[in-house]
């Protein structure tokens, strides 16, 4: 399957064989284009997709050694994302499919962040608890036995990635903020400042409080020494990571456990995906906290950031479940996990 992803600022194409087995995974990042603006500019992102998508697809097919005759279908991100960006992928993908008489399956970018785990553990089956954390989303989901994905918790305000980006700006770090905090935090003390652990009802998240707390901490100090900056970054990161994992724990091990058990089976499976899943502290802390009690899958960083390999994996799953899309479709910027 040829897979295409253009929902935000990565232009990506991949070739994924059934299994799923990854044959190629090409990503052209636009970070350089957006850095001067301190964030992703939708029009610039769409323009870059238009110019680079076909060359990226070309490279994905080449490096997989795949000829057109070997392609059985096309998978593409239908949403959610920036509409002008999605449009490019959705139309290029469907034009290719039409011209080569191939079936197309439009998939949810969010669901794909969960299905990315299949590229590393192909035998993974539901039920699976998924934590999808990125610049636009912080969702706790359940990959159900019937193949669908149900949202069981979401953020009430900022997404985790947004919280990292805003925190980075407060600390005077460059865009993209998540990796900048991750790097700086390695030199800091995560216990230097006790940031509040945000609590929202149920399994929901909330990050605006901790962001405000960081702002106050920075304002309290006349000037930040390098060490203070690193300590703040480490403490801020720790608060976000801890808040995320608290909710995961509450979902995995509800107490008291009802008569039906936790609903996750004898050994629960946890998948963490999305751009924020590249964060080293999140990966390490999740391993410490759940490594011995659950089967934990956090895909390699290049499969956590936006990529088309995961779209291919999702395409194969959706294909099995509901078949290809019967008619041409538009981009759906507000699409959820379905």
């Amino acid at each position: 399957m040829l897979a295409i992803e253009t929902s935000c600022d990565e232009t990506a194409a991949a070739v994924v064989a059934s299994g799923p087995r990854l044959l190629s995974n090409v990503i052209r990042s636009q970070d350089e284009l957006h850095a001067p603006f301190g964030g992703v500019v939708p029009e610039i992102a769409a323009r870059a997709h238009l110019q680079t998508l076909v060359p990226v697809i070309e490279r994905a097919l080449e490096s997989a050694g795949t000829r057109w005759e070997q392609v059985d279908g096309v998978a593409v991100t239908r949403g959610p994302g920036l509409v002008g960006c999605l449009l490019v992928g959705v139309n290029v993908a469907q034009a290719i499919a039409w011209a080569r008489k191939l079936p197309v399956v439009g998939v949810s970018h969010l669901a794909a962040h969960v299905f990315a785990a299949l590229l590393e553990e192909p035998e993974l089956r539901p039920p699976v608890l998924g934590l999808v954390v990125s610049g636009g989303h912080s969702d706790l989901v359940r990959w159900q036995e019937d193949g669908s994905i149900a949202v069981i918790g979401r953020t009430r305000d900022d997404a985790a990635g947004e919280a990292f980006d805003k925190g980075a700006r407060i600390l005077g770090l460059p865009f993209p903020g998540g990796p900048a905090i991750d790097r700086l935090a390695t030199a800091g003390d995560p216990r230097a400042v006790a940031f509040p652990r945000p609590r929202a009802p149920g399994l929901d998240f909330s990050f605006s409080g901790v962001k405000t707390a960081l702002l106050y901490e920075v304002r309290k100090r006349a000037a930040l020494s390098e060490q203070e900056r690193a300590d703040l970054a480490a403490s801020y990161q720790e608060a976000i990571v801890d808040a995320l994992l608290q909710r995961v724990e509450a979902a995995l091990f509800p107490s008291p456990v009802g008569e039906g058990g936790s609903g996750w089976g004898p050994s629960p499976t946890l998948v963490i995906g999305g751009g924020v899943a590249r964060n080293r502290r999140l990966r390490e802390a999740a391993q410490q906290r759940f490594g011995s009690q659950a089967r934990l899958v956090i895909p390699a960083p290049e499969l956590c950031t936006d990529n088309a390999a995961m779209i291919g994996a999702a395409g194969l799953i959706e294909w099995d479940r509901r078949g290809p899309d019967p008619a041409p479709f538009d981009a759906d910027p507000g699409l959820g996990f379905a």
């Binding site: 449009l87 490019v88 290029v92 034009a95 290719i96």
Partner: peptide, 17 residues
Amino acid sequence: FTGLRVGLSLAAGLAYA
């Protein structure tokens, strides 16, 4: 914006395929 992106994406996809 939208009209051009749709038209150019379709054309590029067709030509390439």
